[in-house]
Design a protein around this nucleic acid. Structure first.
Length: 608
RNA sequence: GCCCCCGUAGCUCAGUUGGAUAGAGCAACGGACUUCUAAUCCGCAGGUCGCAGGUUCGACUCCUGCCGGGGGCGCCA
């Protein structure tokens, strides 16, 4: 397809500039079936090719003057040395009869081709899309093994808002990739190894295992960690024991390992409580902590040494990847083995790359890690490529995200100045949502209210995290995220709940209207139908750029379109044929809203 | 000092990889509830897209240089 070829050409230029493949390279991997813009582009491509004398992208885009516009003639005109409008006319002539798909085509302005879709075409396409379990979303044309590295809390440390972002964004990416048919491997790279464990284990011993387990199990991880740290800094005897304990841990001492496992087990038990509350997919099966790679580290050093990349610098074993410099403009090393013989996180990250590629068969490596880690991950990638562990087909993508800020535009902090506990944040979200439900819908039973409060409260927190460009910082604001106005989870959920309410009143099973091809008499019905068909490309674009907010923007657009339809097109009071048609549109909207929210890890209640 | 990210309406944010007149939601103002959930909707306003150059038929988008904010830059992770 010409679209594919043109996109690939653009991508290859991008790759040369960056020096590494990017996740955007997969743009060419799919050819959307449902999105009418793609259907039109496919249909116009041969006509453009005939005029251009080569394959050529018609550049079909949304338009505010028609359903779509083809912009390809403008660029082509210069290449051909002719007038853009003449090129556009020639393309339309070459395209022949388009009347099964388009109601009108018109050359406008400097050479745009405005395209109006035929109602029957839209209705037919929608019927076909909704007959599929994927709701028209095209599966990935080539299935990749995608390893997603996300969440990564630290054992014996509280989860805070930084983990919220990684966990929520990672979970959405996992769901979206899986939906497209990719093989997804979740990896929760928990911090369960390293020097802090000396003091943590000694504190565990001091406290008594039973008491320590209780404290950790209750989720009072911060107090545990802080007390260990305090003793480490103020008590020389404790410090000496902690250091000895690190040696014992690394030496594989049985009793020390047992104590260490207790810390890990109690902490992960607590993490799981948070994960369940947060409605994410992570389980113990996804744990791939730093300790897992411990035995591989010596091998990494050896392989780097054999390949001649490893050099000694200031007593440490390092690799100098090209293009990285320090303050003094000297080459910046990735430290593989410290002067004291210990390994650090760079070594572990390299071991992860090797494990994921060689053992898991990874094609894509996604790192849902904060933006400050950019340079470190670039260096890990550079060394991995130099060592030959990654080749051109491997995608190494740092899915970077910004910080969560308070209303003062500074990093979100609790009143006491500490990082905000994630568990407390989620509890407050549910409480606030519960209060709102109680106020707005007093008839709802207490049980239902509790369920809805959880879906709405957690959904609001997650959605506000997902709805904006992840690389930017975002401002945490309870009132805004829980509002039913604007681009929020409650707004989308409310649209869904209203549809469920219509079917309850109709006394009709949703499945009954599922095969209906709708009648698109009202402009609102027409717009809604077109928007429903764009679910396909919305999901693909979100996946290609690892940007869940693109799916959010689409779902908001869909909910807005539905609300407009809802306000102007009575469903239950309409004549039979129209009523059936509108019920079908309602059902389709509810399914796409529900599926879209599900891809974001958010539930869609049937009543609110 | 060098590198990376960000800068769009009073506020919070989109902007489909270079297309026509830059869009939403808050807040403000004016409207719509004997109605399928008014937790909603409609209207009205609101802009030197940080600044200045450049590339071209066309730039919020690409390039260069500044300004402002954040982050990173050798043995913590």
């Amino acid at each position: 397809m010409s679209v594919t070829r043109c996109s690939l050409a653009r991508f290859s230029l991008r790759r040369q500039r960056n020096g590494t493949p990017s996740a955007q390279g997969q743009r060419a991997e799919w050819e959307s079936m449902a999105d009418p813009l793609h259907s039109v582009a496919r249909r116009l491509a041969p006509a453009f090719a005939a005029v251009a004398g080569r394959e050529c992208d018609p550049v079909v885009r949304p338009s505010d003057r028609a359903d779509a516009q083809a912009n390809g003639a403008l660029g082509l005109a210069r290449e051909l040395g002719s007038q853009p409008r003449a090129v556009a006319e020639a393309v339309l002539a070459a395209a022949g009869d388009l009347s099964d798909m388009l109601a009108s085509t018109e050359v406008a302005g400097p050479g745009f081709i405005n395209l109006v879709l035929r109602d029957g075409f839209i209705a037919r396409e929608l019927g076909a899309a909704m007959a599929e379990p994927t709701l028209g979303v095209t599966p990935a044309s080539s299935v990749r093994t995608v390893v997603v590295d996300y969440s990564a809390p630290n054992v014996a440390k509280e989860m805070h808002v930084g983990h919220l972002r990684s966990t929520v964004i990672g979970d959405a990416l996992v769901r979206m990739h899986g939906f497209l048919g990719h093989r997804v491997v979740r990896e929760n790279h928990v911090g369960d190894w390293g020097t802090p464990f000396g003091m943590l284990i000694e504190h565990l011993v001091d406290l008594g295992e039973r008491e320590a387990a209780h404290e950790l199990g209750m989720g009072d991880l911060d107090a545990f960690y802080k007390e260990a740290r305090r003793k480490f800094e103020s008590d020389d005897g404790f410090k000496a024991r902690a250091r000895a304990r690190v040696v014992a841990l690394q030496g594989g001492d049985t009793e020390t390992l047992r104590l260490w496992r207790t810390l890990v087990a109690e902490s992960t038990r607590y993490f799981n409580i948070v994960y369940r509350g947060l409605d994410v997919l992570l389980t113990d099966d996804d744990l791939a902590g730093e300790s897992k790679y411990n035995d591989l580290l010596a091998g990494i050093v050896e392989r780097l040494d054999r390949s001649g990349l490893l050099v000694e610098s200031d007593g440490a074993q390092v690799v100098f990847p090209e293009g990285f410099t320090n303050r003094e403009n000297e080459p910046l090393p990735l430290i593989i083995r410290k002067g004291d013989g210990g390994y650090n996180y760079a070594t572990t990250d390299l071991a992860c790359v090797v494990d994921r590629v060689e053992n898991l068969g990874a094609d894509s490596l996604l790192y849902v890690v904060g933006a400050p880690q950019a340079q470190h991950l670039q260096m890990v990638e550079a060394v991995s490529r130099r060592a030959g562990w990654l080749d051109e087909h491997h995608v190494f993508h740092h899915v970077a995200f910004g910080s969560v800020l308070g209303s003062d535009r500074k990093m979100l902090k609790s009143r006491s100045g500490d990082a905000v506990k994630l568990a407390a944040l989620l509890a407050e979200a549910v409480e606030r949502a519960g209060a709102a439900v109680a106020e707005k819908n007093p008839e709802m039973s207490a049980d239902d209210r509790a369920d809805v409060a959880r879906m709405v409260g957690i959904g609001a927190v997650k959605y506000s995290d997902l709805a904006t460009d992840r690389v930017k910082d975002y401002i945490f604001d309870w009132d805004r995220m829980l509002s039913f106005d604007g681009n929020t989870a409650p707004y989308l959920q409310y649209a869904h709940a209203r549809i469920c309410s219509i079917f309850r009143r109709a006394g009709l099973e949703r499945e009954r209207v599922r095969t209906v091809v709708p009648i698109l008499g009202d402009p609102r019905e027409r717009t809604l139908a077109i928007t429903l068909l764009r679910f396909d490309s919305a999901v693909h674009e979100a996946v290609d750029t690892a940007s869940p907010h693109k799916l959010c923007t689409y779902l908001f657009d869909l909910a807005t379109g539905f609300t407009s339809f809802y306000e102007n097109c009575p469903v239950l009071r309409a004549d039979d044929a129209v009523k059936t048609s509108r019920l079908a549109l309602c059902d389709a909207t509810a399914r796409v809203l529900s599926a879209g929210l599900d891809l974001l890890g958010i539930r869609a209640p049937e009543q609110m």
